[in-house]
Design a binder for these strands. Structure first.
Length: 404
RNA sequence: GGGCAGGUACCAAAGUGGCCAAAUGGGGCGGGCUGUAAACCCGCUGCGGAAACGCUUCGGAGGUUCGAAUCCUUCCCUGCCCA
C-alpha cells in the first residue's frame, strides 16, 4: 500500500481545492492504519444520464481513489433530482417515475464503467434515506442551518440581486445533499467547483450530526466545445462518451487551440510538463497544432472505443475533411424510382425541419449532389435514371440516396 | 392584505394603435478564409408559396377598433416596497 504522502499527491493532481488538506492526510493515515478504505462520495443527477467529457473529469478522480483501494459511492440523486440543483439556471423539474429513474440508472451503469472499476463502485440512490425522512425530520434538518448562510451561495445571491425567482424548495437542496453525506458517513465528497457550496454544507451538517466532517475536493469544470460555457447537454456544447468515434473525433478537432491544451490537462494522463512543452512548440511553430489536436482526439476516442476505432476515426477524418473525399459510411436514403424535387425529398427524409429552411440552405449554397452545388430550389432529381447519388448538406452531413 | 414594476421569438432585450413577422445583441444555420481550428468576414434565422402574397405569433381568455404586441376587462405568473 502506498504511503500517505504518495496517496495524497496522486489524489491532489488536477484538483482545484481540497478542504482541508491536512484532514485528508489524517484520514488517509487512519485508513492505512485500520486497513479501512475511505468512503468517497460523488453525486449525479438522475435526469441526464448521458455522460459527457465534463463528467469524466470527476469520474477520473473517482478512479484515482479506487486505484488506491478506496471505496467509491456513485450516488444517483433521484430524490434531490425532484428539486433540480439550483446551480445554474434550472428551475423546477417534473417528478420522475421510478421506472425512468431506474432506466437512467442503467444508462449510467453502462457508461461509467468505461472509467470506473466495476468491483469497487457502489451505486446508491439518495431516495433510499431522503424518501424516509418525515416532515418532522426535515424541519429538524432545516433548523440546523440559517437562511442567511444558504443565501450566501453565489447563485442564490445573484438571483436575489437580479430579481430572479428562488423557490423555497430550492434552498433545501444544499441541505438534502448535505444529509446524503450524513447518511453515507462520507469521508470525502467530490464535485465540480460549482458544487463547492453544497459540499461545504455537507461538512457543517455532518458536524451537527456528530460526525467527522468530510473532506471536500473540487475538480475543475470542463469548458464545452465553445470554450466559454461549461460543458453541458443543455448548451449542446458537449461530447458524449457514447457518441460514435467519428463524432467524438470531429468534435474534438473543432475546438480552439487554447481549449485543446485544457482538454489535454483535464482529460488525459499526459504530464503537465509535457503539455507545457507542446504549448511552447506550437507557439514557436515547431509543431502543427492540428497534429496535436488530432493526437488528443485519438486519445479520447481510444478511451471509450479502443485504439482500433480511434485509428479508424482519424483516418476517416483525414479522408473526408482534408482530402475532401466521401466518408466510408453514410446514412442511406431510399427513394422510389421517380422524378422528385430535391427540396421535397430532403424535407420528407427529415434532413430539414421545414421547407423554408431547406430552401434557405439550398439558396445559400449548402447543398451538393455528387459534388455539384445545387442552388436551384426547383432542382429535380430523377431516380429513374440514377441508382445512387451522394448528397452533402452543409459541411458535415452526408447521405447516400438509393433507388428503392 | 395594500401599493408599484414587469411577462415579447432559442436566450437577453427594444417596441406602447397601422410604417411590426416585430429593432439590436447573443446563439444557431449556410457560405468565405483555414488546420472541418479558433478569431474574422458575408448572408440567413416563424410557417406555406417560384414569386406576388397569404397564414399563425408578443403570458392565457375575452372585448374595443376598419386595424391591437400596443387600449379595456379578467385570470395566471415574476420581482420590489409596505403590512
Amino acid at each position: 500500500m502506498k504511503s500517505v504522502e504518495e496517496q495524497f499527491e496522486y489524489l491532489k493532481k488536477g484538483s482545484v481545492e481540497i478542504i482541508q488538506e491536512n484532514e485528508l492526510k489524517q484520514k488517509l493515515a487512519r485508513s492505512i492504519k485500520e486497513k479501512k478504505p475511505l468512503k468517497v462520495k460523488a453525486g449525479f443527477d438522475p435526469t441526464a444520464p448521458d455522460i459527457h467529457l465534463g463528467h469524466t473529469v470527476l469520474l477520473r478522480k473517482m478512479k484515482h481513489f479506487q486505484d488506491l483501494g478506496h471505496s467509491v459511492v456513485f450516488l444517483i440523486g433521484d430524490f434531490t433530482g425532484l428539486i433540480g440543483d439550483p446551480s445554474g439556471r434550472s428551475s423546477t423539474r417534473p417528478p420522475m417515475t421510478r421506472e425512468e429513474i431506474n432506466k437512467n440508472a442503467e444508462t449510467y451503469k453502462a457508461q461509467i464503467f468505461k472509467i470506473l472499476d466495476h468491483k469497487k463502485t457502489i451505486i446508491d440512490f439518495n431516495s433510499r434515506w431522503l424518501g424516509k425522512l418525515t416532515s418532522f425530520d426535515i424541519i429538524n434538518l432545516t433548523a440546523k442551518y440559517t437562511v442567511a448562510r444558504i443565501l450566501e451561495r453565489d447563485d442564490f445571491s445573484k438571483r436575489l440581486k437580479t430579481g430572479q425567482p428562488i423557490s423555497t424548495h430550492e434552498i433545501l437542496y444544499p441541505l438534502m445533499q448535505a444529509y446524503d453525506s450524513v447518511a453515507l458517513e462520507a469521508d470525502v465528497e467530490l464535485g465540480g467547483t460549482d458544487q463547492k457550496f453544497n459540499l461545504l454544507v455537507g461538512r457543517e451538517i455532518q458536524r451537527e450530526f456528530r460526525q467527522e466532517p468530510q473532506v471536500v475536493m473540487t475538480m475543475p469544470l470542463l469548458e464545452g466545445l465553445d470554450g466559454v460555457e461549461k460543458m453541458s447537454k443543455t448548451l449542446d456544447n458537449y461530447v458524449g462518451i457514447t457518441e460514435p468515434p467519428g463524432e467524438i473525433f470531429g468534435k474534438i478537432m473543432s475546438v480552439s487551440d487554447p481549449l485543446m491544451f485544457r482538454y489535454y490537462e483535464l482529460l488525459t494522463d499526459e504530464s503537465l510538463s509535457r503539455i507545457e512543452n507542446w504549448r511552447k512548440e506550437a507557439k514557436e511553430g515547431q509543431v502543427n497544432p492540428k497534429d496535436l489536436k488530432s493526437k488528443l482526439a485519438r486519445t479520447i476516442v481510444a478511451d471509450f472505443w479502443g485504439e482500433k476505432e480511434a485509428e479508424k476515426a482519424a483516418g476517416e477524418f483525414e479522408r473526408v475533411f482534408k482530402k475532401r473525399e466521401l466518408p466510408s459510411e453514410m446514412e442511406e436514403i431510399t427513394v422510389k424510382p421517380a422524378e422528385v424535387l430535391l427540396l421535397d425529398l430532403m424535407v420528407d427524409k427529415n434532413i430539414f425541419p421545414s421547407r423554408r429552411e431547406a430552401k434557405r440552405v439550398i439558396r445559400q449554397g449548402g447543398v451538393y449532389l455528387d459534388g455539384q452545388r445545387i442552388e436551384d430550389i426547383q432542382f429535380k432529381i430523377d431516380m429513374k435514371k440514377e441508382s445512387e447519388v451522394f448528397l452533402k448538406v452543409g459541411k458535415k452531413k452526408f447521405y447516400k440516396i438509393k433507388k428503392a
